[in-house]
């Protein structure tokens, strides 16, 4: 069964050996051309891409966290700003209210004072009038008394005329 191996040892199968070696080398070259080179190239590219992706992912993650920090800062900043604005507005409103109230009070006291003055003036005027009136009337009465002092009738008439005159004075 193995007799051909003995002949093979004497160089009979050198052709076979050459055939195997050459066909294997050709096979290797074809595999390299068809599959090995593209596959290993692609695998290398993929390894590079993955490494790059990891790097860029790291970078963009950092960027995103920076942005978030910035936004948080801006947010807190704007919050304090807003509360400042509100406080300011409140303050200015308060001030305005105070001035308005003060103004109104001043005005009111001014009005009151002038009104009081007017009233006083009027009262004084009225008093003066009354005084002069009273003086006039007293003079009239005195004159009338002096005129009609003689008789009771005359006295009566004097009183009547005085009352009449009073009514006239009233109506005047």
């Amino acid at each position: 069964m193995l007799s051909h191996l003995i002949i093979g040892a004497s160089g009979l199968y050198l052709g076979d050996m050459l055939f195997i070696a050459i066909s294997f080398i050709i096979l290797m070259a074809l595999i390299a051309w068809v599959a090995w080179n593209p596959i290993t190239k692609m695998m290398g590219e993929r390894a590079n891409k993955i490494a790059n992706d990891i790097d860029t992912a790291e970078k963009s993650r950092k960027e995103a966290s920076d942005l978030a920090d910035q936004r948080r800062d801006a947010l807190s900043h704007s919050r304090t700003e807003a509360s400042g604005i509100v406080a300011e507005a409140k303050q200015s409103g308060e001030k305005q209210r105070a001035t308005i109230v003060a103004d109104a009070q001043n005005e009111a006291t001014q009005y009151k004072q002038s009104a009081r003055k007017d009233i006083e003036q009027e009262r004084q005027d009225a008093l003066k009038n009354v005084q002069s009136d009273v003086a006039d009337i007293s003079v009239q009465i005195a004159s009338k008394i002096i005129k009609k002092q003689l008789d009771p009738e005359g006295q009566q008439a004097l009183i009547n005329s005085y009352i009449e005159g009073l009514g006239k004075h009233e109506s005047r």
Partner: peptide, 21 residues
């Protein structure tokens, strides 16, 4: 060319190479 070839081996190798390829 003065070399002896075993057709069975060579055929099988060719087929193997073709399948692999």
């Amino acid at each position: 060319l003065g070399l002896t070839f075993d057709v069975a081996n060579d055929l099988s190798i060719l087929i193997t190479c073709l399948i692999v390829l």
